[in-house]
Amino acid sequence: MGGEFETRWGKIVFYVLIILFVLMTISPLLWMAKMALVSQAELDAYPPTILPQSFDLTSFQTIFGDNRFRAGLVNSMVIAGATTVICLSVGSIAAYALARLEFGLRGPVLSMILAVAFFPAVAIIAPLFLQFSNWGMVNTYQSMIIPDVLFALPLTVYLLVAYFRELPLDIEEAAKVDGAGPMQTFFRVTLPLSIPGVVTTGLLCFIFAATEFLFANTFAFDSTTQPVTVIIPQFASQYRTDYGAQAAASMVVTIPLTILVLAFQRRIVSGLTAGAVK
């Protein structure tokens, strides 16, 4: 498929399609930004104005003046942060064993962890809801962190196994010759050398937990624990006609996520697609 374009027209059509693709991908973001930044009068105007005619920060004042929105941002950070830390701790040692140590059940263990990625989350919300109710754990951070860890774990292990395997074996072997045990080798050599991979994995864990919705919507009852993904759709009912506030809230959440993803774009793509071709 590589190589030269056969005709001049082929080239033009090709570029038009690529530009169309890029436009379709980013125009909803630009439109949300516009809606968040224009005046109420312009938001109500019909037919819509394509280019912004006014500039107004009222929408951002509305959402940041809302206690539930601010609490939601904090809750999201706590839930996603805790999920990331737990996943990286549990996942990195498991991934090291799976990548570097020899043991008979390695294949089955790896398959079992990866199978969770295909497991429908909705299948376990009823029993978890019963258990959490019995233990007085509904409407707590743990009720979301626990299932989030489960579902972020396969991705964590999968990526870290790939990163650990990429490291040159002879460095680890040299550590072994110097008398280091496998655990020392892991903490002193393997882990420090794969920091970029661990950071990328942590970022993906964080994004996963920050975008999770089903558990959050089921187990969190009020703004003391509800993350921002649950709070914003509620805005749609609360600020029913304040479209600017809804747009501003969406922007506040998605812009940092987008920047993070774009910054780590290359690593994320190579990590996530490694398994598809192997």
């Binding site: 980013i26 909803p28 439109w31 975008t211 969406s250």
Partner: peptide, 29 residues
């Protein structure tokens, strides 16, 4: 290739809120 990854990082619930706004009938958004 970079822009291709942007929508993927969106929380689906928030993507739905955004698009619901854009699908509203008879309003500027």
């Amino acid at each position: 290739r970079a822009t291709a990854l942007a929508p993927w990082a969106f929380p689906p619930a928030i993507a739905a809120v955004m698009w619901r706004l854009m699908f509203q009938d008879q309003v500027g958004g």
